[in-house]
Design a protein around this nucleic acid. Structure first.
Lengths: 213, 213
DNA sequence: GCCGAAGGTGAGCGGGCGCTTAGTGTGGCA
DNA sequence: TGCCACACTAAGCGCCCGCTCACCTTCGGC
């Protein structure tokens, strides 16, 4: 179920597209620092230091500290949307597609917790324009999940009273994994993904037989 | 179901115990500022300004800015624990107690979103000692919810494979309400509380008849 | 072998931060 | 009425922030 790419230890997976090398190292350093301390508590000197460079080097590749957060946020949201989109448009019943979407989405939030934390919780530190751009991506994530649930209801697989509210709760449940998941805790990302897929199927009234075993 | 105290507009409800008056005004100002901008992005000048005082006045009542966050966090967590404890120890079936706990806990996070946001999301800005104290309160919250679920499983009301994981997911779901809930959105705190109580009962395999209507 | 572009550094700027201190107005009490 | 304790303010200290700038190296092309 899980690919090496998704759960790669260094979490450096998704940043391959960022060039040149120095810009990528700065970006990864920023992700780590923002995740540990939060955007406002992180200094540009800290980011540059983690990347093994002088404070001034940051400004060769990025106009401001906020541009770093914006870039991280956009790449992260695009990755999240891609995960949901892939799962939503796979062949299969709504039940299978929802379980797949939730387990892979949760796996991403747990395994790439450092990145996911920044992506999901530092949104308010962006300026209005950047935030609007990111919010548009979020709405697309919402639409993908809602589409699966609507399909399931139409097919009689799911039993959901409030589709909009349930969609929101499902996404909320998955996203919050980034807040509490601990790499040294009792669960692997795969285990949390499986547990959550089961819980979400129950939420939509499709807990089914195998969940009751 | 909901009391005036829980959903009072100004959210000033729980701070009655803080004296003298100037100290309370500063604390409420800090809650609002932290919720809007985050702890690190909030300045002591901003807090004092909102309370209608000079920057120096803050230090008559609080040793540091962090002490403000610590006080807010402790009072908020005590309130949250009280809500869960009251619901958990009420008379009734596990099903009824879980529904009551979730709906009142969610109502608190939605209605008192400003406070809940600070309480749930600014924990990492505390120093180690203060954080440890707050984490102990969190563990008590977890224990209350887990006790209800264990009761339900023992009584044959619930069907739960992983009690620990399900407890965590239920709390996570409720807490994350503070992140996304919007006072100007389509739902009232009561509505979200009712929706979430239903969803949580489904998660523990007690969705029951009335949910299927 | 010289040149310019690209990518880096060390020093430091203007400013706002958390917090302190000296001084002020005020209300309660002998 | 005189006095002091208390709550509060105006001013500002020392520090570190985001960011800039003058200068330095490296290296491919002619």
């Amino acid at each position: 179920m899980s690919t090496a790419e998704e759960t790669a230890g260094g979490e450096a997976q998704a940043w391959g597209e960022v060039t040149p090398d120095a810009a990528r190292r700065l970006l990864i350093a920023a992700v780590e620092a923002f995740a540990e301390r939060g955007y406002h508590a992180t200094t540009t000197r800290d980011i540059a230091g983690r990347a093994g460079m002088s404070p001034a080097a940051l400004y060769i590749h990025y106009k401001t500290k906020e541009e770093l957060l914006h870039r991280i946020s956009r790449i992260g949201h695009e990755k999240a949307l891609e995960i949901l989109r892939t799962a939503a448009r796979r062949e299969g019943t709504a039940r299978e597609r929802l379980a797949g979407a939730v387990s892979s989405f949760v796996r991403w939030h747990a395994g790439g917790r450092t990145t996911a934390r920044v992506v999901q919780y530092e949104l308010d530190s962006l300026g209005p324009d950047a935030r609007d751009e990111i919010l548009a991506l979020r709405r697309q994530c919402d639409a993908e999940v809602r589409a699966i649930i609507e399909d399931g209801v139409a097919a009689g697989e799911f039993d959901v009273v409030d589709v909009k509210g349930t969609t929101l709760a499902v996404l909320s449940l998955c996203i919050d994994v980034a807040r509490w998941f601990n790499v040294n805790g009792p669960w692997t990302p795969d285990e949390v993904g499986a547990l959550y897929a089961d819980l979400v199927l129950r939420m939509v009234g499709a807990g089914g037989e195998e969940a009751r075993r």
